[in-house]
Design a protein around this nucleic acid. Structure first.
Lengths: 219, 219
DNA sequence: GGATGTGAACGACTTCACAGCG
DNA sequence: CGCTGTGAAGTCGTTCACATCC
């Protein structure tokens, strides 16, 4: 008995979530171009994957496409943003005010997508008291005190490797639930905290690996 | 007929290569602690994966472990570095001298692992002519001319999104074979060029996705 | 015709479980 | 005994292929 139109709605894999971000870009690009429809094939081409993959990913969000037509970019935007959790603001705290922090603060994409960096912390007393791009720099020793009850949810760790674990511990005590870590360290965290790590050395080593090992053929 | 000790040597997956970088850190840490042996279980604990996974990854590099004993960190170091392609120097060029570039240049891990940033380029004429951390900043318009025959192999793209594709094209014309791209753009490249992208917005969206969707249970 | 959504096949990665060595 | 290396099993993600609908 084939239940005809039972909605799929299977769960998104982590890999699929990464692709959603890319679909979103392509879609927003299409919207600003005034495009009223876009096919799985077009989307797939934009990120060098097959159309079937695109359809499967998007099917997880509901029945959004129209057979014979394609997808309406406008109609796609909201469900993708919801699935990624960027349909709301995330009060964000950034620890470690160095060059990376400056780059992150000024990175246009962040504010635009709902990531408001509201607090800056640094352990250097010379920096605490000054401000950067209008955000005051606060002393790291008072992190828990200042942040408790503040509603901070996301923490960006841009401190040296030696201070990363301690910074993470403090942020967590202050109630932060999600960490984006730039320090080249494997952090130990309680199970309720979510972590994404961006380790530049690993990315570069990934590249040299591809050049060394994958040179054989592949595309 | 079970050939008894035929060496495994299967090929490394991309995911495995990422883990090798992490094993390498743990191993170097162990070495500097004077540890003379380390088990797959210890290594696995360090990065929250199972011991069987560690053994399979390491088995790709040859027969390096000793049953009943474990692995000798010193003996592991070289094969891992070789597999990752970091047993030699990679002449590297960095384009786009902003805050991110400054962070990358000063990032201790890079030089230490054989990534020497030898050239800096920027399209801003005010910057060209000056230097940063002892590396002169060169005018982006002359990239091909200056780099041709220079032996540059890796290119780091730290320019705004709007200039990323053009920068990639130029670097490739100048003979660069591997790109690490920080701009939030999907680059179109010829098949012989290898690419790793670090897209900060995507990483943050990955995090909010985990917090939104994965809050259910999981660890 | 043209494009979606999806069962089924396929492939890749992970985990189990155990033989075999020290 | 402890721990590696590895077939076999299991799990997850991708691709194929086609029924279905505009």
């Amino acid at each position: 008995m084939p239940r005809p139109n039972r909605i799929g709605e299977s769960r998104l894999s982590k890999a699929a979530a990464g692709r959603l971000s890319l679909y979103l870009r392509a879609i927003e690009h299409a919207i600003s171009n005034g495009q009223e429809r876009i096919s799985s094939q077009e989307l797939g081409q934009a990120l060098s994957i097959r159309d079937a993959q695109v359809r499967r990913d998007l099917a997880c969000l509901g029945t959004l496409g129209h057979p014979g037509i394609g997808y309406n970019p406008e109609k796609l935007r909201k469900p993708i943003r919801r699935a990624l959790g960027i349909d709301r603001e995330w009060p964000t705290v950034l620890v470690g005010v160095g060059n990376l922090a400056r780059a992150l603060l000024r990175y246009a994409g962040f504010r635009q997508q709902g990531f408001h960096i509201r607090w800056l912390f640094d352990s250097d007393p010379a920096k605490a008291g000054t401000s950067l791009d209008g955000v005051p720099i606060l002393p790291a020793e008072q992190m828990e005190k200042i942040l408790s009850g503040s509603g901070a949810e996301l923490g960006l760790i841009a401190v040296p490797a030696s201070a990363a674990q301690e910074t993470a511990d403090r942020l967590i005590r202050a109630g932060v639930r999600g960490l984006l870590n730039f320090a080249p360290v494997v952090l130990q965290l309680p199970p309720h905290v979510r972590l994404v790590s961006v380790d530049l050395t690993i990315q570069l080593e990934q590249l040299t690996f591809l050049l060394t090992s994958g040179t054989i053929i592949s595309d």
